[in-house]
Structure formats: structure tokens, C-alpha cells
């Protein structure tokens, strides 16, 4: 084996910096995080940590705030994934239409610009757009004679407000993937279906949608992982409030860290990690099946 390594030393030299960065800034922190999750918070970062087994996990799983936060995170993720993908698919089909051939690049640009806009900057602006006295949203609703939108200050509307801001930031990404897939589809199939007398709805449902399966799977994985980790929007716009209604897991775990409750926070990180892995593996199996077809 040593001979083989020496023979291919060029490749080991090439891979070394990559391996070092992955190890030091990726794997080491993860191992450290899992290790800390088994220690007593007060001693966790000291020179002689006290190991307490699964005690932190027991505390976390019995914590009603954590369980509420987990349920909230999963509900929000489901809502956000559905809203983002439906919107992105709708816009992709619209923009891809030959009727919009002129100007379609402008539409793409407008919807993708928020993806590359620093999220902090985008959410700071949205925070003020939703503001009840400064914001144009409520001013416009008032002008139209519609009831005011509670925005970030009401427990009933804050999830919608956060969802809108996140959709603005992320949907262009999913739309771009749908558009790439639409561009690769076999257009001859649609002509054939048309000759066979299929109507527009049948063509869309039976011919186009099945060909979009790869983009749907990729977007589903990305969006699920993305929204499970929802964090920046909470830090910038709501701080978890009002009354905990946007206190998602990442934010809750971060708050515990801030309070020095390292053991519980890292236990939460491990639990969220496990959820992400299970969901990703499930989706990868979906992808494999899609690839095998």
C-alpha cells in the first residue's frame, strides 16, 4: 500500500490542502460537537470535561420548548418547501414559454438577483417593508381599503411574513434549476402528443411534468435542507418572536450556546444533523431510482 501511495504521490500532494481544510474546519468541529454533547455544559470546554452519557439528550427531548420548536421547524419546512417549489415551478413554466421569448432574460434576472444578494441586506430591507408605520406594504393595503397586515409584530402573521421574505431570497434558485431542466427536455414528444390529439393540459401533465423529475428531486432535497436550517431570517427579522412563534431549532440551539448551555445545544445539533441525514438519504434513494429509469 505504501508503494501505491508513493507511486501516486502527485495526487496525494494535490489532495492534501483539501483534505486538511475538510478535516480541520469540517470533521474536527463535528467530532468536537458530538463529544461536547456527551459532557456537562459547565465543564464542556475546560481541560477536564465531565462525561454524562446521554443526559443532555434526555434533557433536550424532555424540554417542551425544544419539542415545540422541532414541530414548528418541521411545519415551517413543509410549508416553505411547498410554497417555494410551487412558485418556482410556476414561474419557470411561465418564463420558459415561447410566448415570452422576448424579455425572458429580464424576468430571470429579476427573480435571481435576490439569490446573490447578501441575505442580511435582503432581510433588513424586508423587516422595514413589513414595518407598520414605516413600511410600504401596510400603506398600500390601507390605500386599497384592505385590512392591515400584522407582519412581524403579530403571532398570526409572522410565519407568513418570514416565508415571504425567504421565498424572495430563495425561489429564484429553484426556478433556475427548473428552467435548466425544461431546456433539456425532449420537445419532439410534445409535438407527437399534439399530433395524437392531446390537449395542452394533458401535454403538461403527462409529457412535460414526468421529464422534470430530476429537477423536482434536486429542488426537494435542497429546499428541505435549506428550510430545516432557517436561521439568518430569524436573527435579522424576528429574534424568534413574537412569543416564540419563529423560534426554529437552529435559533433555539444558538441561544442555548449563547447562554453557555453547550451540552444541550450540541445535543440539539446532533438531533438536527440526524434528521437532515435521514431526509437526504431518503431523497438520494429517490434520485437513484430516478436515474435508473
Amino acid at each position: 500500500m505504501i508503494d501505491r501511495v508513493w507511486q501516486h504521490r502527485v495526487f496525494y500532494a494535490l489532495v492534501l490542502p483539501f483534505a486538511a481544510l475538510t478535516g480541520v474546519f469540517g470533521l474536527w468541529p463535528i467530532v468536537l460537537s458530538i463529544q461536547v454533547s456527551f459532557t456537562q455544559s459547565a465543564t464542556a470546554l475546560g481541560s477536564s470535561p465531565v462525561y454524562v452519557g446521554f443526559a443532555n439528550y434526555a434533557v433536550v427531548l424532555a424540554d417542551p420548548i425544544f419539542l415545540a420548536s422541532l414541530t414548528r421547524t418541521l411545519t415551517y419546512t413543509a410549508l416553505a418547501v411547498a410554497a417555494n417549489l410551487a412558485f418556482a415551478l410556476g414561474m419557470a413554466v411561465l418564463i420558459d414559454s415561447p410566448r415570452l421569448a422576448r424579455g425572458s432574460m429580464l424576468f430571470r434576472l429579476a427573480l435571481f438577483l435576490p439569490v446573490v444578494t447578501p441575505d442580511v441586506a435582503g432581510y433588513v430591507v424586508w423587516r422595514w417593508l413589513f414595518d407598520r408605520s414605516f413600511g410600504p406594504i401596510n400603506a398600500a393595503l390601507e390605500l386599497a381599503g384592505l385590512p392591515a397586515f400584522g407582519g412581524l409584530s403579530s403571532t398570526h402573521t409572522v410565519t407568513t411574513a418570514v416565508l415571504i421574505a425567504e421565498l424572495w431570497h430563495h425561489a429564484g434558485f429553484y426556478m433556475t434549476i427548473f428552467l435548466a431542466n425544461l431546456a433539456m427536455r425532449d420537445k419532439a414528444l410534445e409535438e407527437a402528443a399534439q399530433i395524437d390529439g392531446a390537449n395542452a393540459w394533458q401535454i403538461w401533465w403527462r409529457v412535460i411534468l414526468p421529464q422534470l423529475r430530476p429537477a423536482i428531486v434536486v429542488n426537494l432535497v435542497y429546499a428541505t435542507v435549506q428550510f430545516l436550517k432557517t436561521f439568518t431570517v430569524v436573527v435579522v427579522m424576528t429574534k424568534g418572536g413574537p412569543a416564540d412563534s419563529t423560534n426554529f431549532i437552529s435559533y433555539y440551539a444558538y441561544q442555548l450556546f449563547d447562554q453557555g448551555r453547550y451540552g444541550e445545544a450540541t445535543a440539539m445539533a446532533s438531533i438536527l444533523f440526524a434528521i437532515v441525514i435521514v431526509l437526504s438519504l431518503g431523497a438520494f434513494r429517490l434520485t437513484d431510482r430516478a436515474g435508473a429509469r
Binding site: L228, Y254, I277, S280
Partner: peptide, 10 residues
């Protein structure tokens, strides 16, 4: 795959 913001603390 590790939750990014939770990786940052370790």
C-alpha cells in the same frame, strides 16, 4: 450536511 450555523460554534 451538518447544519451550517451549528457547525460554526464548534
Amino acid at each position: 450536511m451538518y447544519p451550517y450555523m451549528l457547525l460554526v460554534i464548534p
